[in-house]
Amino acid sequence: MKNPNMKRLRRTMMFLNAQKPGLIKDPYIYKPDSIMLDLEDAVAENQKDAARFSLYHALKEIDYHGVERVIRINGLDTPYWQEDIRCAVAGGCDAIRIPKTESALDIHLVEEKVLAAEKEFGRPEGSTLLMAAIESARGVMKALDICDASERLFGIALSGGDYTKDLQTHITGTGIELMGARQNLIIAARAAGKQCFDKVYTNLNDTEGFRKDVETIHLMGFDGKSIINPRQIRIVHEIFTPSQKDIAFSEKVVKEIDSKKAQGIGVFTVDGKMIDIAFYDGAKRTIELAKASGVYKGEL
């Protein structure tokens, strides 16, 4: 059976160090869509086991109030990732984020271990979703293969720091160095019917820069953004949540198309704009997004 969470709302995916009890005890109060409990970069080499211990008990004991719990495991080139998967699945996580993904094979390797862990710990098979972080030029070029590699994989995410290093440039703040990767990733994700997420924005004090960055990726078609601080949530949600004006218009479009279809009319106007069936999916998507964001009170 297909996992019902494949297409869930993921406007904000907040990184948290899995080793810090103060951080992971209650991030749901800030209402992010997903949290990403990190076993990788945030955790020192000699603390990996302690972080897994803390992660396992957090997953077991804490009610995250419906916030999706994604675990970032260590890279497949480390000795840690297999035990990370066992711990995450044993704890009952919702998804695993694979770092530095460069090929479909990476997904298959993880998928195999996840299945084994689901069997080992009595978790329903297929209950653990996957997402892939793309952090290199090779990964960007293989994005479509990666998206198609598994039915468990709900999306791909750009990781900017490593990617720009690989490109022999750096994060400039203008977004110019990320243009190609962002375009490639969103196109690949959409081609495969998967979701796509943008990189973190690390300058917490540059609210305006962050807002511009989020507006850009929203217009490009991304589903959401990785974030590093709860202060960033409100801005992302504001931009990714349809406005009441958009919702009202989409509601009219859906209702009019449904009723005009019955009358055999193909083209008509709503609020002075020409509308035909091509608008239907977009309008439906806006309503669905509004519903998922909790701002739709209508009957559609």
Partner: peptide, 8 residues
Amino acid sequence: TTDMRKLM
């Protein structure tokens, strides 16, 4: 303060 908990 920039502490989101306090701001909230």
